[in-house]
Nucleic acid binder design. Structure first.
Length: 893
DNA sequence: TCCGCGACTTGCACCTACGGGA
DNA sequence: TCCCGTAGGTGCAAGTCGCGGA
């Protein structure tokens, strides 16, 4: 699709209309499934089909604002403006002819991240000092550009020098020693993580060698009372002490007393939560506490709590860091931040002691006895047959019922249960209405329950589940993520999944492998007479249990710790550190792939173009897929037909990505890229692979040569986080908290668009918009009437009768003016709300916040601008990102 | 080098509790 | 008090990527 142009100025801080930003390429909407959704009723098992969903009105990837399917126009970069567009048309540096990347220069002067992290919310914020004494990353304006996502460079290329200088300043501020190159430091640090004295090889021994008496949980409950011989803390001399094992010593390691521990922990939490000064920004609370010693803020307490965890993660790490620095004689940042690396590699010890209670199973099926009809006659079904029939019946209002594949797969599996000689011989003659109606009744009853009844049920459920909700990891109580075994059901694959409708059979203890500490009591098997499939003691993995996916036995379903756990937090932090590391390498990586756009070696050419697309468009890597999976693609698996050339230099992408979400985007590219695509498409059929010499392994292997640990995925995190960081720092102005939050949401939205995070339009969206329009119309009528009254009042005349004929009160002009301004404000607010609602109707903001945006950017920004962190992160995110809460306010990604 | 397994992250939809407005 | 809209929690599907064995 052609890029439309307009003379609209680019107003980066005008959030009411982000379409004003320069348009380089646009996404086109093509949601096909919208209409069906209206037919759906609320159903506890309903899923939306998501295929062919449209892209939102979106700036294109990397923050470049795209034009809209609505036909909005916006300025487009002229060809000359393309130069900075990916930062790759600059003269390549002297890397040479190969794709190798020149590594950035190290700087050993800068203080470490580790040093910065010593500051927690518990202490008074120290004035910035050495933070800014390090290398100035903006010494070279090219560095400036390369540290930004492509979009920013594009955007700024259209800006005057003011913008550039703002960016430059912000990067001057970002001169922490994270900027120190990793290549120099990595080897040293890798050594750190490779010490093996903590490995327990026995954990890897074959199943046959696992103690037989511990094979299942039945009758093992006596062991649960046995006090654990394991230490509460992992010794510091353990090389893996960098891991969270030595955190929070407050909880005893007694593995026999999880329950007691839970209760006490709960009490503690409750007390803490009773306090409340959530409205105070973290930064203020830090000051407040520093000055007054007040410890009453609930959030502060949460933060204190999480800081404890954070400290406990980083404390041994710091010790380790000291050692490293001493050893290496370098204060390099990477040495310090590499504390995170030891646990990241596979085969590394993740925990020392692990105690948990296993998993909870869904209740057994209870027959309802409602008879479905076959050829109009009631049919008797066994409980197993009825259970599956009910699964199908309750999906009547979903889009799956429009799909033959779903029905065929269901029929094939159900038929096996029915048996060949069953009276039911085809699905077409089945009428599930009686079961459907019964189910609606059950739902209605549930709805009609009083709050009290609901509360009782909830409490009962809590009581049953509580023991499964927690695990003790190295003596620390951690929440378990998904301790409930998935109930049986019909598989709801997304898009056109070939297995949709297949029966997902019930999982039994005999399907489940439990992973637990060697000395921990084996969880009692909750189903009498059954036993676990296997007990393992593998401390190199983080899962607590797994079973084979009944739909695809090659795959596993795992039970992990919750996102708020230290293990997950640590892994998260590593992820962001890696993305942050890319900032130091990106310039050279871009130079390298730019050179290869004309490489005669076809593999190198393909690697270059693929890397460019991943960098520029934040595409996913694109692993190969089997025939029994939905037909979706990523970068490496793009087909010729997924990319259309639009002369002179535009590429139109159109494919189904992860979750069968449509990716549709037209983008201006550099001419060598355009020509390379032309070359790659030549003599190929539409269904052929565009990158036929490439797969994700090769691509990632290449990326690893450019930066340690670099994979395609890192570019998404990098682009998302750096976009947020830059936008927040460029666009935040003085103002009230509300205005600052709008800035944040705007940046969040841009990131969601870059990552193509979509959501389906709410069923009630149109109705809500109509309501808002009506209200605005009403208010405008009121405004008109007030204006008439004001004119009359100024002339000393009484107001006219109202529209319903009533006599109005005689008001002074001042009062009328005030009323008018209030009404105007209401109208403006409603209009803003409408616009936001419309803008975000297809954009999912949550995914990027949870997975791609380095929380330290957000926390630091909140501290700098006195925005309460709770305005940005909900309770779950606060817990998930506890490790980021004590970041320095000056932190930049 | 390829391939499949295994472990983990990412991602969207559904459900429900809660809060604000009528 | 009820209704409506939504945020947050949950469920589970669908990705990514490292590793080890053939």
């Amino acid at each position: 699709m052609a890029v439309e142009t307009s003379d609209k100025p680019n107003l980066p801080h005008d959030f009411d209309d982000d379409d004003d930003a320069p348009i380089i390429y646009k996404r086109i909407s093509s949601k096909k499934n919208q209409t069906h959704s209206e037919a759906r009723k609320s159903n506890s098992h309903i899923h939306d089909g998501q295929s062919y969903r449209q892209a939102p009105n979106a700036p294109s990837s990397n923050g470049q604002t795209s034009s809209l399917q609505k036909g909005n126009t916006a300025p487009s970069l002229k060809p000359s403006a393309m130069k900075p567009s990916v930062g790759i048309s600059r003269t390549p540096n002297s890397v040479g002819n190969t794709s190798s990347v020149k590594l950035p220069v190290a700087n050993s002067k800068s203080p470490s991240l580790g040093d910065k992290q010593k500051m927690s919310v518990d202490v008074k914020v120290e004035p910035k000092s050495t933070e800014h004494s390090g290398k100035n990353f903006c010494e070279d304006s090219e560095d400036d550009e390369d540290d930004k996502p492509l979009s920013f460079r594009l955007k700024n290329s259209n800006h005057d020098n003011k913008v550039t200088s703002v960016v430059k300043k912000s990067y001057e501020d970002s001169d922490d020693d994270d900027d120190v190159p990793l290549a120099k430091k990595l080897p040293r640090n890798l050594n750190l993580g490779t010490t093996s004295n903590n490995h327990e090889d026995s954990d890897k021994k074959p199943i046959s060698k696992i103690q037989k008496d511990r094979q299942n949980g039945s009758g093992m409950s006596n062991k649960q009372d046995r006090p654990s011989p394991l230490p509460a803390k992992r010794p510091l001399d353990n090389s893996n002490s960098l891991q969270p094992s030595v955190k929070k010593p407050k909880v005893s390691a007694s593995d026999a007393s999880i329950k007691t521990e839970l209760v006490s922990e709960k009490r503690e939490l409750k007390t803490e939560d009773d306090d409340d000064d959530d409205h105070i920004p973290i930064s203020q609370r830090i000051k407040k506490q520093g000055m007054t010693g007040d410890k009453s803020s609930s959030t502060k307490k949460v933060l204190q709590k999480v800081t404890k965890v954070n400290k406990s993660i980083s404390k041994p790490f710091k010790k380790q860091t000291k050692k490293i620095v001493k050893k290496s004689g370098s204060g390099s940042e990477y040495s310090k931040s590499s504390k995170l690396l030891p646990s990241s590699g596979d085969g590394q010890k993740k925990w020392t002691t692990l105690v948990h209670n296993g998993v909870i199973f869904p209740p057994p099926y209870q027959q309802h006895g409602v008879k479905m009809l076959y050829k109009g006659r009631p049919v008797d079904l066994t409980p197993e047959q009825e259970e599956v029939a009910t699964m199908y019946a309750v999906m009547r209002d979903t889009e799956y019922m429009q799909k033959d594949k779903f029905k065929d797969n269901f029929w094939n599996d159900w038929r096996k249960l029915l048996g060949r000689n069953h009276v039911i011989q085809n699905l077409k003659d089945c009428d599930f209405t009686p079961i459907y109606d019964w189910y609606q009744g059950v739902k209605d009853k549930k709805k009609q329950m009083t709050t009290e009844e609901k509360k009782i049920l909830k409490e009962e459920k809590m009581k049953q589940e509580e023991k499964y909700m927690w695990a003790m990891v190295d003596g620390v109580k951690e929440k378990v993520g998904n301790f409930r075994v998935e109930p049986p059901g019909l598989f709801r694959g997304r898009g056109e999944h070939p297995k949709m409708g297949k029966l997902k059979k019930r999982i039994h203890p005999g399907d489940i492998t439990i992973n637990i500490g060697k000395d921990a009591p084996i969880p009692e098997c909750p189903i009498p007479g059954e036993r676990w499939k296997e007990i393992r003691h593998d401390n190199t993995v983080t899962w607590l249990a797994y079973w084979s996916d009944p739909i695809n036995p090659k795959l596993f379903k795992y039970v992990f710790l919750a996102a708020s756990s230290s293990l997950k937090g640590q892994s998260d932090k590593e992820k962001y550190e890696k993305a942050r590391m890319l900032k130091d390498y990106i310039e050279n990586i871009r130079s390298a792939y730019t050179k290869d756009f004309t490489n005669k070696d076809i593999t190198k050419l393909q690697i270059a173009v693929a890397t460019y697309l991943i960098d520029k468009l934040a595409l996913r890597a694109g692993n190969e897929k089997d025939d029994d999976e939905a037909d979706t693609v990523g970068c490496c698996t793009l087909k010729v037909e997924n990319v259309t050339r639009e002369p002179p230099n535009k590429l139109k992408f159109n494919f189904l990505g992860k979750d069968s979400i449509k990716y549709e985007n037209t983008v201006e590219v550099e001419l060598p890229v355009y020509n390379a695509i032309l070359k790659l498409q030549k003599d190929k059929r539409p269904g052929d692979d565009l990158f036929d010499k490439l797969d994700t392994s090769k691509l990632n292997a290449h990326l690893k040569e450019l930066m340690p640990g670099l994979t395609a995925k890192v570019f998404r995190t990098f682009n998302a986080s750096i976009t947020l960081d830059n936008m927040l720092n460029q666009e935040t102005k003085d103002g009230d908290v509300g205005e600052k939050i709008v800035v944040y949401q705007h940046a969040n939205k841009q990131v969601a668009i870059i990552c193509n995070h979509q959501r389906s339009v709410s069923k009630s969206h149109d109705a809500q918009m109509s309501k808002l329009t009506e209200k605005i119309d009403e208010l405008q009528a009121v405004l008109k009437e007030l204006k008439t009254d004001l004119d009359r009042a100024r002339k000393g005349k009484p107001p006219l009768k109202s529209s319903d004929g009533k006599t109005k009160k005689n008001l002074t002009p001042e009062v009328l003016e005030k009323k008018m301004s209030q009404t105007n404000a209401k109208i403006e607010k409603m209009q803003r709300d409408m616009k936001t609602k419309e803008d975000l109707k297809t954009v999912a903001l949550g995914t990027s916040k949870i997975n791609y945006l380095d929380p330290r950017i957000t926390v630091a920004w909140c501290k700098r601008h006195e925005v309460p962190i709770e305005k940005i992160f909900n309770k779950s995110l606060l817990a998930k990102f506890c490790w980021a809460m004590d970041v320095d306010p000056d932190f930049r990604f």
